[in-house]
Design a protein around this nucleic acid. Structure first.
Lengths: 215, 215
DNA sequence: CGAGGAATTGATTTCCATCAATGACGGTGG
DNA sequence: CCACCGTCATTGATGGAAATCAATTCCTCG
């Protein structure tokens, strides 16, 4: 997640492959082994773990430029699965080739940066799931995604492109989609945010931040 | 976390410092800047985030040999706090010196390994907090710690040294200590595990695994 | 022996899950 | 063009898991 831009800039073209995946399709499976490192180039994806009884936890969302994970540069095996949320473009690069590029300091630095961002993000999610209420969790997720969306898009009128279904929100913050619907309902009634037609409209950013900022 | 053994083996002695910290004392604070990389050499510690209203989430426990975090090799600032759970020995090394050692492939590989282990561990914790019941969360934590404890100690009679208070368990799995007490009570009644006097005795490992194995 | 933190236990409340029904779309094929 | 269907969102009623509040009791350690 993050930092792959630098990697791509550094890289030649010949040892990369591109691929389009339709919305809803799975891209990689947990425990799958591959000689490639994956980067998402367009659209949205998400990483997740599925429990034996079907419960699903979304670990994070992938936006354009995101490496599937820093660990995948070193590990030949994924410890999570990835699905396309929207139609998605992915680029794959031979791991061996990527590792050769690790001789270049800027590439190493980009990876190191991505590593610490991954770790910090994970830790904030753990704290949110462990200690926050439903409203706080959802607010946190929205704020987190807004920041990342804004890095890719010009935001006018506080309207963010937002392809998630309520089920995705639920699976990301550890709630049921029914309860997500209720919470988003109260957010709408209170004029905090409104979510419809793949657009997130923020009506009261201070209130949202008040709910969703851990500290 | 993990992989610091290799680092230490690789390292000389002169640019390291050792320190003893009493149980309960804080070792580093969130946002604290330091020129040093920290390794825990003896005792137990834990990493945590504290929310504005005092809610605390323990992110993970540190055992001997653990780097506080891989990210701290690259970042001069911690994004979490660390406290000593027991009396603890810590070793600090100049970050600049550690980074020089990054020219050595085995050190890089040790770090990469630690990075992917951190990421996988975080993701499993996220899934556990997001999707599992109180019993499952506690069982998961116990199993996770048992594995790590067994790597440091000879385990006889299924008795593990276990210095956590119920409050620590609660803060690690996102519950209240009252509820942890109840769940541990039923575990004891069912003969699954018994926790007392800093010793965890496992009475029925299969049942524990059945509860705490995500898949 | 006494004191203070830790654990246990009970009563009650709160939050969220579950179950179930309905409505709103959007696409598809007759 | 419209009936049909599947997916998604909403809403109500109910149940259950864990939080909260509040006493004790149990240890550990001066």
């Amino acid at each position: 997640m993050g930092g792959a831009d630098d990697l791509a800039r550094e890289a030649g073209e010949s040892w990369q492959h591109h691929r389009i995946v339709a919305a809803g399709k799975q891209i990689v499976a947990r425990n799958q082994e591959t000689p490639d490192v994956f980067v998402l180039c367009g659209g949205w994806g998400f990483r997740f773990l599925q429990l034996a009884d079907g419960r699903r936890q979304i670990l994070g969302f992938l936006l354009p430029g995101d490496l599937f994970s820093v660990a995948s540069v070193f590990e030949e095996r994924f410890h999570f699965s990835v699905k396309a949320l929207t139609t998605v473009q992915i680029s794959t690069m031979r791991r061996s080739e990527v590792q050769l590029r690790l001789k270049s300091p800027p590439v190493v630095m980009a990876l190191a940066k991505a590593c610490s961002q991954e770790a910090e993000s994970s830790d904030r999610i753990i704290a949110t799931l462990g200690r926050c209420s439903a409203e706080e969790r959802i607010a946190f997720l929205l704020l987190h995604l807004m920041k990342r969306i804004a890095a890719h898009n010009v935001i006018r009128d506080q309207r963010y492109p937002f392809p998630l279904r309520q089920q995705h929100i639920a699976d990301a913050v550890g709630l049921t989609s029914v309860h997500v619907s209720r919470v988003l309902g109260t957010f709408r009634d209170r004029g905090i945010v409104e979510l419809s037609n793949g657009v997130l409209r923020v009506g009261n950013l201070p209130d949202l931040k008040h709910l969703g900022s851990l500290n």
